[in-house]
Nucleic acid binder design. Structure first.
Lengths: 150, 150
DNA sequence: ACATGATAGTTGACAACATCAACCACTATG
DNA sequence: CATAGTGGTTGATGTTGTCAACTATCATGT
């Protein structure tokens, strides 16, 4: 049984490698690094996402998060606004250009993945999707347990 | 359909994030970075793995690969030997300590994943394994296509 | 045999990036 | 209103990967 599980881990690691930072030959997402792209996606999902929240979501320190948002802002994909509720926190928001770049990159990836998956029966694709969804849920549950500990 | 595929991509990216470099709170694998660990695993799988092959396998330049092997050698997990067949190439090999650290880390991960997956029916786990295996095969096929292009 | 070109690996200079610690600005509490 | 706490920024720093130039070895043709 342990062997089975460690196989799964190794496969997850391979996949993580491929779809993570090292799977790209050149630039990953237009003029964004993967880190920046992930941050932008998080920002896009939320109304008023603070710097620290970004850091927590992506496992960065707050100064790391500051730097990432700096870069996104310089590229014109995000903006900082002071929160009206609490003058200390920054509400980070996507710009129109930010939204555009996300959809552009997503489109690109979809084509890529579609090509990769073509030839599989739809039913097989569905089962992959199911499996991934289960994994995501497990990850999220586990993350919420971790944050309870703190 | 496109929506379905882009969902899959987003999930893959989430998973890649979690099991990749940014999913760790602290050190990832004993005293190794993820990159070093991946390289060590590759080395371990092959008898006489050259520096360039490591670079290709992990998407690094040859000088990057040199640096990674430097680190592994300094930590005592790998050794360089000149190939007897071709005096230019380095055969990188794992040391006993290298093997030890791999099995130690693998053990650790297995426990972690086992805990994460407990509660799922064995049948569900099997279907996850299947899905991952399919993904890996697709990745490998696609990589071999890429290397044909060059 | 030897000149020429290709290939494997190394190295110095460099740039990108994330962290730490110190700091500033604002908020909350007594 | 003093004090402590929190969110965010910044300078200094260390790690890490790339580029280009270099050395050493091999392969080829004459």
């Amino acid at each position: 049984m342990g062997k089975n599980i460690s196989d799964i881990y190794n496969m997850l690691q391979e996949i993580a490698w491929h779809f993570g930072n090292h799977g790209f030959d050149e630039e990953c997402c237009e003029d964004l690094s993967l880190v920046e792209f992930m941050a932008l996606k998080k920002v896009c999902d939320n109304k008023c996402f603070s710097i620290q929240e970004i850091g927590n979501a992506l496992n960065f320190t707050k100064s790391g998060a500051t730097r990432i948002i700096d870069r996104l802002e310089n590229k014109g994909y995000a903006i900082r606004e002071r929160s009206p509720v609490d003058g200390r926190v920054c509400c980070v928001a996507v710009t129109a250009e930010g939204k555009l770049v996300i959809s552009k990159v997503t489109e690109q990836y979809t084509v890529y993945l579609e090509d990769m998956l073509k030839g599989l029966e739809p039913q097989k694709i569905e089962s992959i999707k199911d499996a991934l969804k289960t994994m995501i849920e497990l990850i999220q549950r586990q993350e919420s347990i971790q944050s309870d500990d703190e």
